[in-house]
Every structure is written in structure tokens, then in C-alpha cells.
């Protein structure tokens, strides 16, 4: 009886509802840079390449010599130890971001600040000049010590070959993956019912989610959440980045940043980019749109 009851119902764990990446630590190396504690990780890449630390007030910046080794970068995520995981992302040209080197994750060591290749993701096909993208979205989940990464490597106009991976940070191994899924932004939130990974389609403005089990692996419980295009005054852009926080009144909020995406290079100065806010509805386990605002910061 126990055996039969278990079949088809994975252990979904018992996670405390709320933000799943709250444990992220500030890297220890920052204290050695002389930048102070109030610094931001800046990937705007206006006049420089890669990451840098920025004091928003003074405009003072600092960059480790290795931080431009991956060329232009896009998504990044910090883990509980302060390590920073970074995705290379071509921007204005492929000269600094050869397609063959895009389906990777780099890691900035929390202690030394040195950036080095951490993982090469297994793709259906490598990136190419007609789809130069590999790793796109990154999100760290504290509960399972997992790094989620989306990749568009090998996708074609009429064939979605992208994947979303769960990488076990401790072993640096891919433990689970969603096939045929072209996604950009990814983000994890612990709902009332269970943990879900939210992801933005690279081919439309749709946002989907998939339930994660106790280990953080993907289940078959996937659903469409919303589309940026059908929100009041929405847009046909793709969801580029997810972030979650808890407001002072206890309300959980999801913020979604957008990007106009067409599997072509991304460089453009768009002053009209927006950020979409949603409030968590514990009763329904879903998100209610609460407004769109001009995008600020990374």
C-alpha cells in the first residue's frame, strides 16, 4: 500500500513559504577592495565589459582583472557562501563572446574575487552565429543549495532546444533538466503549497512555472502563469529576470524585468524598459499584477 500510494506523487518537501534565496551572502572579498560595504554588482557594461563593483553614491567602481574574461555578461546569482555565478551573454558583437563559449557558468570565488569557469552546460547543440546564446538566467535556491540555469543553446527558429538545469552547487553536477524549453529569466519561490520555479519564455511574453520536488528537481506539474503582453499596459517583451522579496507588511512581491528578445544581439539603450510587480496570493497560490514601473538598476 505504501508503495502504491507513493507512485506518481513525488515528495514535494516542506519548505517554509517565502523567498527562496534569502540566505545569499555578500562575498568576503569585497571587504578587501576598499569599496566599503555599500556596493552594487553592476553589469550595465557601459564603457567596460563584464562585472564590476559600484558605489552608487560616489560612482566609484572596482573590477577584478578576471571579471572581463567571459566577455560581456548577463545574469548573475550569489549563493549562501557569497560566491557569484555569472552567465556570459553576447551584447553588441560576438568578438568578445564567441558562440562556442556561451553555454557556460563562471564563478567568482567569495574569498579571492577571482572569476573562473565553473561549469559547461550540456546542450543539444552548441550556440552558433544564428543563435549565439547559451546560458541566460540564473537563480540560487537556498533550501536545496541549487543553482537553476536556463540555456538557449542550439535552439532554432522552429525547434526549441533550450533547457533549464538544476545544478547541485556542492557537486557542480546537473541533477535535473527541463527539455525543449527556451527560457530567459528564472526564479524560485516557496509557495504555500510547494516550491515553484518561474521562467520567462524566450519566444513570447509568457511566464510559466513548474513545481519542484523536495530535492529541487523538476516535476511534471507545469502551468502558465501570465503573459506580460496581456497585462494592463503590458508589453510583448520576454521576462528577463525574476526577483522576490517580502514587504514590511508581510506581503510577498515578485518583480519581473523585461527584454525585447528575438535570438539576436541584445545591445540597445532602451529608456522605456519596465519592471512588472506582482503580489503573492496565498489563498490561490498565484500572483496578482500590481503595476508596471520604469526599470531601475540591474
Amino acid at each position: 500500500m505504501v508503495l502504491l500510494a507513493g507512485c506518481g506523487k513525488p515528495d514535494m518537501g516542506n519548505f517554509k513559504p517565502g523567498v527562496a534565496d534569502a540566505c545569499r551572502a555578500m562575498p568576503a572579498f569585497i571587504s578587501k577592495t576598499g569599496m566599503g560595504a555599500q556596493v552594487a554588482i553592476d553589469t550595465q557594461q557601459q564603457g567596460y565589459m563584464g562585472l564590476r563593483l559600484l558605489q552608487p553614491q560616489s560612482g566609484k567602481s572596482w573590477q577584478h582583472p578576471s571579471w572581463d574574461d567571459a566577455g560581456h555578461v548577463g545574469a548573475f546569482a550569489r549563493d549562501r557562501d557569497g560566491n557569484i555565478y555569472v552567465a556570459p551573454t553576447p551584447d553588441v558583437s560576438l568578438a568578445e563572446n564567441p558562440p562556442a563559449l556561451q553555454n557556460r557558468i563562471y564563478r567568482i570565488d567569495a574569498q579571492t574575487g577571482e572569476m573562473a569557469l565553473w561549469l559547461e552546460l550540456p546542450a543539444v547543440a552548441p550556440p552558433s552565429p544564428s543563435n549565439p546564446f547559451g546560458t541566460m538566467g540564473l537563480f540560487y535556491d537556498c533550501d536545496t543549495n541549487s543553482l537553476y540555469a536556463s540555456s538557449l543553446a542550439g535552439s532554432e527558429p522552429k525547434q526549441a532546444n533550450g533547457r533549464i538545469y538544476r545544478v547541485d552547487v556542492a557537486t557542480q553536477k546537473v541533477m535535473s533538466q527541463l527539455e525543449n524549453t527556451d527560457a530567459i529569466g528564472v526564479g524560485v519561490f516557496n509557495g504555500v503549497e510547494h516550491k515553484r520555479l518561474y521562467f520567462g519564455s524566450a519566444r513570447s511574453s509568457d511566464v510559466y512555472s513548474v513545481a519542484l520536488d523536495a530535492a529541487g528537481d523538476f516535476t511534471a506539474d507545469a502551468r502558465h502563469e501570465f503573459a506580460l503582453a496581456t497585462l494592463p499596459d503590458g508589453n510583448t517583451t520576454s521576462a528577463r529576470k525574476f526577483s522576490f522579496k517580502q514587504e514590511r507588511d508581510g506581503q510577498y512581491v515578485m518583480q519581473v524585468k523585461e527584454v525585447e528578445f528575438g535570438f539576436r544581439l541584445l545591445a540597445e539603450n532602451n529608456p522605456h524598459r519596465r519592471m512588472y510587480r506582482f503580489a503573492y496570493q496565498p489563498g490561490q497560490g498565484d500572483w496578482q499584477f500590481s503595476g508596471a514601473f520604469p526599470e531601475v538598476g540591474e
Binding site: G6, P10, D11, S176, N180, F218, A220
Partner: peptide, 27 residues
């Protein structure tokens, strides 16, 4: 795709074997 067992190991083996393979799921 791995399921967290949370049950006795010997049962876990059977449980995995009975509920399908260990390949990643796709949506």
C-alpha cells in the same frame, strides 16, 4: 529526475523502480 525518498531505503529503491525511470522530465 530524482524523487526525494524520505522513506526506508529498501522501499525507496522499489519506489523509484515502480514509478518510472530516473530521467529528467520535460515540460
Amino acid at each position: 529526475m530524482k524523487f526525494h525518498s524520505g522513506i526506508i531505503l529498501c522501499l525507496a529503491f522499489l519506489w523509484l523502480g515502480g514509478c518510472g525511470d530516473d530521467k529528467p522530465k520535460s515540460v
